[in-house]
Amino acid sequence: MRSDEVTSSASSAVIYGILNGLAEQKLFPGQRLVELDLAEQYKVSRNSVREALQQLAAQGVVEIPRNKGAAIRSLSLQETQEVLDVAERMTGLLARSAALGIASGQPRDPIQQALAELDRANTAQDVDAFARARRGLYRALLNTSGSRELKRLFPSIQMPIVYAQHRPSTLQKVRMRDYQAMCDAVLRGDAQAADEAGMAHVQNVRSAITHRFSSSPAETET
């Protein structure tokens, strides 16, 4: 294996670890990311860590201010709304595309299994398992859709930061109910209903976050 391939593989491990830590709420918006600590944690060189942080910065996950260390990006309320605007359209499109995949003969099992795993995690109130199962569900929907562009673009939406930063107590119940409704439409092969359910899910997330801010106005600039 060439040295550039080794570096790329090592940096990918750091990227995955940071994204996974954010999704499982082990990392938080605003948290500093120390190169030396990351190199020790992932058993990679500091060059690999720097490459990973640069890639995450390009994706909007990490901020690297001049003369300061890297940190997980923190979203203002306006930035959160902008992320949700994109997520609403993209989630509807993903659900529609997956429903069309089912209608054209793609297997239902991967989505059904992913949804069952999500339901088990929700019942157990296991936040880490719920985060993993959620990612598994979206992978199943992306695979069912068969869209290369959705596979490329969907992971770039900064919903993990939104979920890590804004955690109203009602949000997980909203998400589970909405995932069920979206998947029901997808599994019926009903593209229009799936599109609407996907967009409704993000609209409900927006409502939960907005309600939290209206109850705690001092937090609107976090």
Rank of each mutant, 00 (worst) to 15 (best):
S8G: 09
S9V: 08
A10F: 04
S11F: 05
I15S: 12
G17T: 06
L19H: 11
N20Y: 07
L22Y: 02
P29D: 03
G30M: 03
G30I: 02
L33E: 02
L38R: 05
E40L: 13
Q41C: 02
Y42L: 09
K43V: 08
K43Q: 12
V44F: 09
S45C: 09
S48R: 03
V61F: 15
V62T: 04
P65L: 13
R66L: 15
R66H: 14
N67A: 14
N67H: 13
N67D: 14
K68G: 00
A70Y: 04
A71F: 08
I72H: 02
R73K: 15
S74K: 11
L75V: 13
S76F: 01
Q78K: 09
E82F: 07
D85Y: 01
V86K: 09
A87T: 02
M90C: 14
T91G: 02
S97C: 12
G101F: 03
G101I: 08
I102P: 05
A103N: 12
A103G: 14
S104E: 11
G105S: 04
G105A: 08
Q112L: 09
Q113A: 14
D119S: 10
V127S: 03
A133I: 01
A133W: 01
A133Q: 03
R134G: 15
R134K: 08
R135H: 08
G136I: 04
R139V: 13
A140E: 12
S145W: 05
L150W: 01
L150Q: 03
L153V: 06
F154Y: 14
P160H: 12
P160R: 07
V162W: 00
H166C: 06
R167E: 13
Q172K: 13
V174N: 10
D178V: 00
A181G: 05
V186D: 06
V186A: 06
D190M: 04
A200L: 09
V202A: 12
V202N: 09
Q203D: 07
R206I: 01
R206L: 01
A208F: 00
I209E: 00
I209N: 00
T220E: 04
